[in-house]
Design a protein around this nucleic acid. Structure first.
Lengths: 225, 225
DNA sequence: ATTTACCGAACGAACGTTCGAACGGAAGCG
DNA sequence: CGCTTCCGTTCGAACGTTCGTTCGGTAAAT
């Protein structure tokens, strides 16, 4: 039973390098449009050499997606712990989502755009994490309704529309001209909660920020790829 | 000078059949993941036979996208003609978009999902129609601001978030369980205009529908489930 | 001596596209 | 009318390329 002193950590490190390059290539050319040879070229590892770290092209996408999703989910659960107010929970969710989105645009585009590329077990496992993630948002929304808010709305439509606003950003957000994560999250959370018509059709701008002003300390955490 | 009595119309008809099958295949397997052979099999036209109607795989996607986009744009401009109230214009835009989306889910998914598949002139031409389409939404939003609404919002973020809500539907809307176009449009337009918190955090449901109640002869039913 | 890391070369399959020939009906002509 | 010419349509077969993956081997480290 050989106990490799070096292999384990170095192997994982190199796998991470490969995954980073693979994510970049998948992002640029799409999963189907990207070839293993593209990833080989980009990462500097030979074509055959890649297969010492992965078993297939599908597994490559799977590893990227599952890691990204589990990370953003764990970060969300952590940020949410201890928070009671449903509306603040929702603001935290939006901040967390967009923060991660703009900090890891490549991986998040892969999550949003390559939703149907995986098959079989890979697909099921990623979908399971996604289900949990959406479930959290739905529960928060139901809590808001329980507190007497948005009773007339279809929760599924409302929550998935919120995800639509957030996830669609990968198609248009340009770092050099658009708001950064914090401002973007404020805007989108504000739109979701109060709409674009502050008041009922005229100007009045109330102080539309009940909570969530100090969730900065919650999110300063270590995240790597 | 041969004057073909039959050829012209029949040729166009058969092309339409091919385009329909191609759209279906592209929708199911993605543009890169779908092969010309898949389309050949699906449409019943031989592999070589396809090339009598199209010049390349890219042109196939181009023809689908450009036709879909020009149709929905023309329909929008038509529905908008004569309407003065900005808020009603916006409601019409949302209704028009979601109406078309749910009536042509395959083509609209292609428009939303295969945004980066085309290259060169094909790409530019589709982007040009898209630009005009988004421009209309932006102008409407600016008119709303001119009327004293939503002054504090970044128009680009607001409008693209609205498109996010609408376009993201292709990832989750199931005809058998989700609201139909009318109800969906009401909900999304309502969320965009007034947010999910009717009033400012408590229950009261005001009459939040200033105009656009009689868009057409549609069912005026609220959303359920 | 065994295991791990790595790679050049090759595998068979599938890709988008093209070729060359066959088919079928209308047009030209005696 | 028969016969030929022509042209749009169709397709089996093949083109050359690229695909994901594997094989067989070398080099270094344990």
């Amino acid at each position: 039973m050989p106990k490799p002193s070096v292999p384990q950590p170095e192997r994982q490190e190199k796998l991470q390098v490969i995954l980073r390059h693979a994510a970049q290539v998948f992002c640029e050319k799409g999963y189907e449009g990207a070839s293993i040879r593209d990833i080989s070229r980009s990462s500097g590892v030979s074509l055959a050499g890649l297969y010492h770290y992965i078993k297939s092209k599908q597994q490559l996408l799977y590893l990227i997606q599952i890691h990204t999703f589990k990370t953003i989910l764990a970060q969300l659960e952590n940020s949410l712990s201890g928070v009671m107010e449903p509306v603040e929970k929702l603001r935290i969710l939006v901040h967390n989502h967009l923060d991660y989105f703009l900090q890891h645009p490549v991986e998040m585009k892969l999550l949003a755009h390559e939703d149907e590329a995986l098959e079989g077990t890979f697909r099921k496992e990623v979908l399971e994490v996604k289900r949990r993630y959406v479930e959290i948002a739905l529960e928060i929304f139901e809590e808001m309704r329980g507190a007497g808010v948005a009773r007339r709305l279809n929760p599924r439509v409302a929550v998935l529309s919120l995800f639509g606003m957030m996830n669609w950003t990968y198609t248009w957000h340009r770092a050099e001209m658009d708001p950064r994560a914090d401002a973007l999250a404020e805007t989108i959370a504000g739109m979701f909660l109060h709409g674009v018509m502050n008041g009922h059709g005229d100007t009045r701008a109330k102080s539309v920020r009940p909570a969530g002003a100090r969730l900065r300390n919650r999110r300063a955490r270590a995240d790597n790829l």
